[in-house]
Design a protein around this nucleic acid. Structure first.
Lengths: 220, 220
DNA sequence: CGAGATATATTCTGGTTCGAACATTCGGAG
DNA sequence: CTCCGAATGTTCGAACCAGAATATATCTCG
């Protein structure tokens, strides 16, 4: 049995759900939504069915019955196998113990920030701050709801984590935007200069910009 | 011309590189590595070539020459088009202005944490702390190097961001591990109880665990 | 009571991504 | 001078994934 690749956490979600009780795929997706797990695990219908197939193929879950309800499409109910239960615990243990390298898109954007000018960047970062604040408010509302209905904290830990991370980004972006705006950001004059020269005759001139940036772009 | 999907930042990296000067794919990958951009953008050879193909198909870059060097495989040098330059700026602007929802694996893991017992979790979180600390040290070393060779801060912003995020996770994990360990985490007795009962006769008993957890798992 | 919206449930399609495989050249150790 | 490992470059196939398409049942509102 070839080892399954562990890159799609949706598979872990399926194992966790089937650990509780047998379900058919549509029921899994609805349960995940009810519990807001679709906020922490990328869920889409297409992927769910292929993930389920792949788990079956690797013997981690198996079909337990095929039922027809009226004239709706036949649905297949799956249950977890012993191998699947072991895999779920193993995988989860691994995820908690060992950080995996992620590639957030904002980090990529920061990598290429010199393509934009400092004034544009400040404007954009301030817009971002607004979104981040709304995001924090949203997550806190979710947490308040959960607390209000007496759900123990262990069941909304993922939201606590999310809000901590968004707050950290907020702090970072605030500092960055401020320091660029007030000129305390190191090298901001150089940065602005390049862009002013690159754009002063009409629109952006790729060649000139490229030339001007080149010496700074390659660490020796 | 169908609009390209903007989900792989490697495409943005290609546009940013070709903005500077024409290159062939292998050169792109080597340049990204030299500049440590492979820390912020997922880079692997297979993907690079298909991303390049897709950019060509959408008219954002184009082949500028095909050169053969001795008897090595023919390599194709690409350059950016006007449409490509516009797309790069647009895309980057978007990424800076608007946070995109990400799904970090650790968040997924936290979602399913009740599958593990609190004592195991504390042990695992402490191991995670070690990794996170090493990660911080690594990034700071990179930053120190960059500063030492006089690279302006604008070119290593992505590392500043990364370190800020890892530090935030460190803080979160520290607090969490401590509060579970010293019993101040809300509901930890309940959590431990469930697991003790579920595991006391030999190994994990999925059925009993499922039953015990069920009432807490579905918000009304 | 009929039309449109929503819920139930799965399949299909085609693009994307990964990892490995391939093929050549170069530099250095012996 | 020759063999081996690293560097130079690209291609391939299989798995993966997102989003749309499909098809029926039920709800709802005038």
């Amino acid at each position: 049995m070839a080892a399954r690749s562990r890159n799609n956490p949706l598979a872990l979600a399926v194992l966790a759900l089937l650990w509780e009780r047998p379900m058919h795929p549509y029921e899994m997706s609805m349960t995940l939504r009810e519990r807001r797990k679709d906020e922490s695990v990328r869920l889409n219908f297409g992927s769910l069915y292929s993930v389920v197939d792949s788990l079956v193929k690797h013997g981690l879950i198996e079909a337990s019955s095929t039922e027809r309800d009226g004239n709706r499409p036949t649905r297949t109910v799956y249950r977890i196998t012993d191998a699947g239960a072991t895999e779920a615990i193993d995988w989860l243990t691994d995820l908690v113990r060992t950080p995996v390298k992620e590639f957030p898109q904002f980090e990529a954007a920061l990598s290429f920030l010199p393509l934009l000018g400092p004034d544009d960047v400040v404007r954009l970062l301030r817009l971002r701050l607004g979104s981040l604040e709304r995001q924090v408010a949203g997550i806190e509302a979710t947490l308040a709801d959960a607390a209000a209905m007496g759900l123990p904290a262990i069941f909304s830990l993922e939201s606590e984590y999310e809000v901590a991370m968004v707050r950290a980004e907020l702090a970072f972006v605030t500092t960055l935007a401020t320091s660029i705006a007030d000129g305390s950001f190191e090298g901001v004059e150089l940065w602005r200069d390049l862009h002013t020269r690159a754009t002063e005759h009409g629109r952006l001139d790729p060649d000139e910009l490229a030339e001007a940036l080149a010496p700074y772009l390659s660490p020796p």
